[in-house]
Amino acid sequence: MILDVKGLNVDYITAKGAVRAVNDVSFQLRRGEILGVAGESGCGKSTLIMALIRLLRPPAAITGGQVWLHPREGEPVDIASRTDRELRRLRWRSMAVVLQSAMDALNPVARLSAQFADVLKEHGYKNTEERTAELLEMVGISPDRARSYPHEMSGGMRQRAMIALALACDPELVVMDEPTTAVDVVMQRQILAQILELRERLGFSVVFVTHDLSLLVELADRIAIMYGGRIVELGDAAEIYRAPRHPYTKGLRDSFPPLHAPVTRLNGIPGTPPDLRNLPIGCAFEPRCPRRFADCAERRPELLTVGDALAACHLHDRERTAHA
């Protein structure tokens, strides 16, 4: 195990009060595993991974829970409670991040080589040029591109350069926030193929956030589905796709028309995502749920074991009592 998240809360704090964007989120990430996090905009998925690596910016702040990182060497660290200075030693070496827009993350007025050298020197690499070339080659960029400025590269190349940079100090955990949303499908597939290949070779773990569940099914080992700031289902990727336990997961799955299977009329999920400032008392998905019943509006379902997966849905209450 590399990451153990326990009851994590993240609030957006305003003068009018706090809005909880991530609510009581717990999960464990195994070594070398790719965990996909999917959900609609505003479900808290991006906030969650920014909290995991403590890159939240005010007004967002962690207001509860722990994020235990178990590095290869040394004691486990609770990232949520450390100071920024203590975290500096862990950044790049233990955890790294790839963001949606490489254009925003890279320095527009510095050559790629300089940006790599900055990171590498900070962490004691002597021969930065050699290491930069090695990293770029790893993601399929010719090493002579190291002298390029970000604007001289295509979107796909920038995104791959970001991945190379994230891997500069051989981290154990890489979090990725929609790294392929801004690139075309062909490039997306190449980038994902590279992530899988590098994971095999280097053995890092990945938390991969996206709104595109169809892509996660092929990429991730396990998938967590978020809704209204909470994880509503967590399980094996193929299993989540084949037999979703939460009606929201099912709705999300059926929002993607098939490429080869016969076309049937699909409806997506009617309604709009919940307002985090004003969540229902019961299940947050209740107003949009096609299978809701009386309980759903009254009590919020807990995230509990259903078969091999976890799901937060009253539909499984009966099953559970039957087992117990």
Binding site: I13, P58, T63
Partner: peptide
Amino acid sequence: TADIKAMRKAL
């Protein structure tokens, strides 16, 4: 800017 006072109080 973020409301610094509100943040301090909450944290």
